[in-house]
């Protein structure tokens, strides 16, 4: 029970911190002081106090989009184990539900974008669905490889099966899988090199351009939802990459949080040292990631 409470607390409170850490890392690379770590929280609380402007073109779907997307992402967050602790909800086949909940969120984010009738938002929606369709097989190759490795059909035993011992025997395959998953993590969360969350040119955006018309609390919900998505995909990544346990339950939570912050630093480093890709190059990288995870699957089956 305390594990479930801690899980929910982390889901509710920690995701925006990742964005703060990424921002701070990027600032450090650029030689700036940067915004405080807690800046995303200030942004959220400011948005929650602002009024809204709603386009006349839109229907109820525009308002329902952020709500359903957040609900789907929250549910998905209950399926991923954090560190060595079991997820609050775990059953046979929950990994498929996990992937499809993210797809449900994507469906409603993109329809809400189409609802505004803006060319830019349509453009962003088209990119989002296309790139995600290409990222989908990577995630599933990784999931079947994990299933093969652990012999179980649920995320919690799947990730908890990974240990330093497993790394010793199947390290190469896991490394390939992590590379593929890292690409998916960056692509699904619209980070550099796929998308630049800080760009100012609508023509080149993916995620940010889809939510141009959302304002006030709606935008706050979207920002938090996006941070949460980064957090749960990150937790999936960390579950494989850092299979350490201290032996003590509470210390494991601290360990997990530290690993998540480390991941945020890693993303920040990638964002600092890389330029974003040209749009036509993105599919190539996504297909390459699929092939990496396919390789890892073959190595595990062999």
């Amino acid at each position: 029970m305390p594990d479930t409470i801690l899980h929910i607390l982390l889901v509710l409170a920690m995701p925006p911190l990742l964005l703060g850490v990424i921002g701070k890392t990027k600032a450090a690379f650029a030689g700036r002081v940067g915004a405080p770590y807690l800046q995303p929280y200030y942004d959220l609380s400011r948005l929650m106090r602002k009024g809204t402007v709603i386009s006349e073109t839109t229907t109820w779907l525009f308002k329902a989009g952020p709500v359903i997307t957040l609900a789907a992402t929250l549910f998905a967050a209950m399926l991923v184990p954090f560190g060595r602790h079991p997820a609050p909800i775990s059953f046979q086949g929950d990994m498929v539900l996990f992937a499809y909940l993210l797809a449900l969120g994507r469906f409603f984010t993109t329809t809400a974008a189409m609802d505004t009738g803006s060319a830019f938002e349509g453009m962003g929606a088209a990119r989002e669905v296309t790139f995600s369709a290409l990222a989908e097989p990577t995630l599933f190759f990784a999931l079947v490889a994990l299933t093969r490795l652990s012999g179980s059909l649920s995320l919690t035993p799947m990730l908890n099966h990974i240990s330093t011992g497993v790394w010793m025997t199947t390290g190469a395959a896991l490394l390939l899988m992590l590379a593929g998953l890292f690409v998916v993590l960056l692509a699904e969360n619209c980070r550099i090199p796929f998308d630049d969350p800080n760009t100012h040119l609508e023509l080149t955006m993916i995620h940010e351009v889809m939510v141009l018309d959302h304002s006030g609390p709606y935008f706050g919900v979207i920002l938090y939802g996006a941070a949460l998505k980064l957090y749960i995909l990150g937790a999936l990544f960390v579950g494989i990459a850092a299979p350490f346990t201290s032996g003590d339950g509470y210390l494991d939570w601290v360990l997990f949080a530290a690993c998540m912050l480390l991941l945020a630093v890693a993303i920040g480093v990638v964002e600092s040292v890389m330029a974003r890709l040209r749009m036509v190059r993105v599919p190539q990288l996504l297909v390459a990631a699929t092939i990496l995870t396919a390789f890892s699957f073959v190595l595990i089956v062999r």
Partner: peptide, 23 residues
């Protein structure tokens, strides 16, 4: 639940209608 919480928040805030942002 999200809709109710958001709705409660929104009811105390001003809202206006406008055209879609044309960049």
């Amino acid at each position: 639940a999200v809709a109710v919480l958001l709705g409660r928040r929104l009811s105390s805030l001003p809202s206006s209608a406008s055209r879609t942002w044309g960049c």
